[in-house]
């Protein structure tokens, strides 16, 4: 009478143990398979498209967006992001690039557009307040986001991304300019740098590079 009642829980226990081990193994296999770094995407004939392989995770940064809210690594997650650094007192290259990005996003499929964010980061916090950058990017596309921060906080982001910039002219007068790195950075849904595109930015090339990178690294279409 006693022996069967002892053996039954033992069988259940052993079975549960095996199921757990198998499940854990399967889960590890799936994560290994999905998170392993694929071979770097072949950029073929696309000029000035540089793939980060492996993807580069960013240190914890904090900027302030156009609505005066914190913009951190969290805001880059769960969607793709195209980042362009500039300043609003930039008459030629910055509006040209933002207009190009507006053209690019307009040509994406609905699915792609819904998980694509364009982020403009001002390197000129002295002149570019939250309100100014908000209105500025909205002029190009209502869906665009803008952010900025004091130089030390910007540095946390610009340093790993290699965004060099220098002020030209007297920064105490209104008309100084910025010489700045003009790449468009492609961030993946894990908030990591996946690629960047060097200027000059023609809309067809940016569109082709961005959609191919998404397909290759994201499994999205």
């Amino acid at each position: 009478m006693a022996r069967p009642t002892l053996r039954k829980p033992a069988i259940i226990f052993v079975t549960a143990f095996i199921v757990c081990i198998a499940g854990w193994g399967a889960w590890r296999a799936v994560t290994w398979f999905t998170q392993r770094e694929p071979a770097p995407m072949d950029t073929g004939a696309m000029r000035g498209v540089i793939i980060a392989s492996p993807a580069l995770a960013l240190p914890a940064f904090q900027l302030t967006d156009g609505n005066n809210r914190a913009y951190t690594n969290e805001q880059l997650k769960n969607h793709w992001t195209l980042i362009y650094f500039g300043y609003t007192h930039c008459p030629d290259i910055c509006p040209t690039t933002l207009q190009t990005l507006a053209k690019v996003t307009a040509q994406l499929s609905d699915t792609q557009r819904n998980d694509t964010q364009v982020l403009f980061i001002s390197l000129d916090p002295k002149r570019d307040s939250s309100a100014i950058i908000k209105d500025y990017v909205a002029h190009f596309d209502a869906s665009f986001t803008a952010a900025s921060a004091p130089a030390t906080a910007l540095h946390v982001l610009t340093e790993p991304l290699g965004v060099i910039y220098e002020f030209e002219g007297d920064t105490n007068k209104p008309d100084y300019t910025l010489n700045h790195y003009g790449a468009v950075f492609i961030m993946d849904p894990q908030a990591r740098l996946r690629a960047y595109i060097l200027p000059p930015h023609e809309a067809p090339r940016v569109l082709e590079a961005y959609t191919k990178i998404r397909v290759y690294y994201g499994g999205h279409s």
């Binding site: 008459p91 030629d92 290259i93 060099i164 030209e168 300019t177 010489n179 700045h180 790195y181 003009g182 790449a183 060097l198 200027p199 000059p200």
Partner: peptide, 13 residues
């Protein structure tokens, strides 16, 4: 009159 110069990813006027 200005010229935007692009070299090595840097843009300057």
């Amino acid at each position: 009159i200005h010229r935007t110069e692009i070299s090595g990813g840097m843009t300057r006027m």
